[in-house]
């Protein structure tokens, strides 16, 4: 498939609003009575200590490049912000994130990253066997889930959940059970000046500040790092927004949907992007490509220096410095 035009990107923007705003509002109304602290409180508590942030997303390069090993060796002293999908990998490898961010309103899948106490009751779903965010979940799902529950319970009191009002109320219950302190926020869904818009409605309902998301959890974590933690430098790992060269379309996030859209040739739904820093051509799907373009729209407007230390993927240029992780950690201590 060709690189998407502005009009096609707009179609994805509209589709995402349609897919997430209604359920986000429903979850926000269910979560509202349980909101005690928000990211506004966190900002006041931290007072912007000027430390850099390291954002750990869950793209395939996190595992391929063994980024966590490099981080551990460096003795990084800044804030560590993990997305929900990378939390298990971090904990299993001796890194306890300061913050774990979650935003996706999916009612059944996301809680697995926190350890799902109701796994046996979920609808049948092979997502965790196919996904590339945490390969540890590919096999022995029940045993792995039990291990995840134990890990999150063990380290929960040391981690703060940066929890969106859009997520299933079960996630908040799970965080509370694991002893994670919760700081709430809402995604900015639409124009905050629109009196009938979702953003204003949800803000009135929850009183939680609205944050720009970039369309996904990793980008939300980056926004959180510079806009709330006030980190002047944000290093990112696992921000691939794509799949390594040679990946079979079956092992991509949107395979089932691409198969539905293009039954004869779902592979034709993938987009090929050349990364000149690596001299490699990576594969991405329309939604991941949309994420990358959203990020490149946001990056130049941020009051931070952004280093993409993923060492893979398609996110480079336009305010994003593509740099090796060891080199960046040496530069930003």
């Amino acid at each position: 498939m060709k690189i998407l035009s502005e009009d096609e990107l707009k179609l994805i923007t509209d589709a995402t609003l349609k897919k997430t705003a209604g359920i986000g509002l429903k979850h926000a109304s269910e979560n509202a009575p349980h909101i005690k602290k928000t990211i506004r409180d966190l900002k006041r508590e931290l007072q912007g200590d000027g430390r850099p942030a390291l954002m750990i997303s869950a793209g395939p390069s996190l595992h391929r490049k063994k980024s966590l090993e490099t981080i551990k060796k460096s003795g990084f002293k800044g804030h560590i912000v993990a997305v929900d999908g990378s939390m298990g990998h971090c904990l299993r490898n001796g890194i306890v994130p300061d913050f774990v961010i979650t935003v996706d309103p999916d009612p059944h899948r996301i809680i697995r990253w926190f350890g799902d106490p109701r796994l046996a009751e979920r609808p049948e779903d092979d997502y965790f066997q196919r996904q590339d965010l945490d390969p540890a979940f590919h096999k022995n799902e029940i045993a792995r889930n039990r291990e995840q529950i134990e890990l999150v319970n063990k380290y929960g009191p040391k981690m703060k959940a940066i929890i969106s009002t859009s997520v299933s109320p079960e996630i908040s219950q799970r965080c509370a059970e694991a002893g994670m302190e919760q700081y709430w926020w809402s995604p900015l869904y639409d124009d905050f000046e629109d009196p009938a818009g979702y953003s204003r409605k949800i803000h009135q309902l929850t009183k939680a500040p609205c944050m720009v998301t970039g369309g996904n959890c990793g980008s939300s974590a980056w926004v959180f790092a510079h806009a709330i933690l006030k980190s002047p430098a944000v290093l990112m790992v696992g921000m691939d927004f794509s799949y390594p060269p040679g990946t079979n379309v079956r092992n991509t996030q949107y395979y089932e949907i691409l198969k539905e859209l293009i039954p004869d040739d779902p592979d034709a739904g993938l987009i090929r992007v050349h990364n000149p820093h690596l001299n490699e051509t990576w594969l991405t799907d329309p939604a991941y490509y949309w994420y990358s373009q959203n990020f490149l729209e946001m990056a130049p407007q941020a009051r931070c220096k952004t280093y993409n230390c993923t060492e893979g993927g398609i996110l480079f240029g336009g305010g994003v410095e593509f740099m090796g992780l060891a080199e960046a950690l040496d530069l930003i201590k």
């Binding site: 994805i12 923007t13 589709a15 995402t16 609003l17 349609k18 897919k19 997430t20 705003a21 986000g24 935003v103 996706d104 309103p105 969106s164 859009s166 995604p187 900015l188 869904y189 639409d190 124009d191 979702y198 953003s199 720009v212 998301t213 970039g214 369309g215 996904n216 959890c217 939300s220 949107y254 949907i257 859209l261 329309p286 939604a287 949309w290 994420y291 959203n294």
Partner: peptide
């Protein structure tokens, strides 16, 4: 086919 969460 949309993303994880709305963006604006």
């Amino acid at each position: 086919l949309g993303g994880s969460i709305a963006f604006v």
